[in-house]
Design a protein around this nucleic acid. Structure first.
Lengths: 145, 145
DNA sequence: ATGAAAGTTTAGCCTCTGCTAAATTTGAAT
DNA sequence: ATTCAAATTTAGCAGAGGCTAAACTTTCAT
């Protein structure tokens, strides 16, 4: 029954693509939140300008995004004040950092150069499932003396 | 000079983020083109409906996207006719397939399950540089008997 | 204490990628 | 040959994520 097989394949495949698409918005949120956490840790306080500068984006874009992040319960802000993360925001940042670190160290262990590891891990990070992350962790355990 | 250091760091980082962002549109184009190639190989001809079904997207969305892909010189189409790839389109599809295959086989070799390997490779594929791809290739050469 | 610089916000615009509903075309069965 | 179902296209909408320019706060020096 080729029709049935076709449908099944399509369903499987579309699920994967759908996941990839839905990842994209979460990805951006995670990037913002992680970056804000980094900035707060570095200088005690995060201003919109810092975020805009590091993300390579206009101030207005950051403002708009922060509104969305506020709605998602990840950041808090009062007008004209620096940005703060909620508990959930910190949690997300922490999770992201761990993930990022594993992926980056994994690429290095695989023999990839520092610069490339840094760049690629940024892109790959958000598409790695827990299962794959675990496999990378095992590899690191085996291959780091 | 902390100000200088800050600026440098911001520039490096923003470049990475900018790359990630600009990747997204290319990514989608690549997904469409690869999928069209697969469908043509499988059934000789690719219709918009097949693409929509497998991508998990509405027909109208496919139509609109095909227009963009046509402008990019990747596909050709006459109204109400099946979709064709240009030479450039086939080239992109072939490149993507090879990349995809390496990433997927790499994940499998790393000990990731089939289902996860399929899904994660779909997401990761577009964020892997040539250098990382080569490193994955080396790993495969070492670890497949 | 005030005025300029730095930072933030608003307003209004754009493109991309999606959607539904309605029109149109094609192709196949009667 | 006609009709009808399936496929395609058009029209119009939405939301995310960008931008610039202009308005508005805050902060800091003088």
């Amino acid at each position: 029954m080729p029709g049935k097989a076709r449908t099944t394949k399509a369903k499987l495949q579309s699920a994967a693509f759908r996941r990839t698409r839905s990842d994209h918005s979460k990805e951006l949120a995670a990037d913002y939140v992680e970056l804000i956490a980094d900035i707060i840790d570095e200088r005690g306080t995060a201003r919109g300008t810092d975020v805009a500068l590091r993300l390579g984006v206009a101030n207005a874009t950051v403002v708009k995004m922060l509104k969305r992040l506020t709605d998602m319960g990840l950041v808090t802000q009062e007008p004209y004040r620096p940005i703060d993360l909620t508990g959930e925001g910190w949690l997300m940042a922490e999770t992201g950092r761990k993930k990022h670190q594993i992926v980056e160290r994994f690429l290095l262990a695989l023999g990839v150069g520092e610069e490339t590891a840094r760049i690629d891990s940024e892109g790959i990070e958000h598409h790695v499932s827990d299962e794959t992350l675990k496999a990378m962790g095992r590899f690191l355990a085996r291959n780091s003396s």
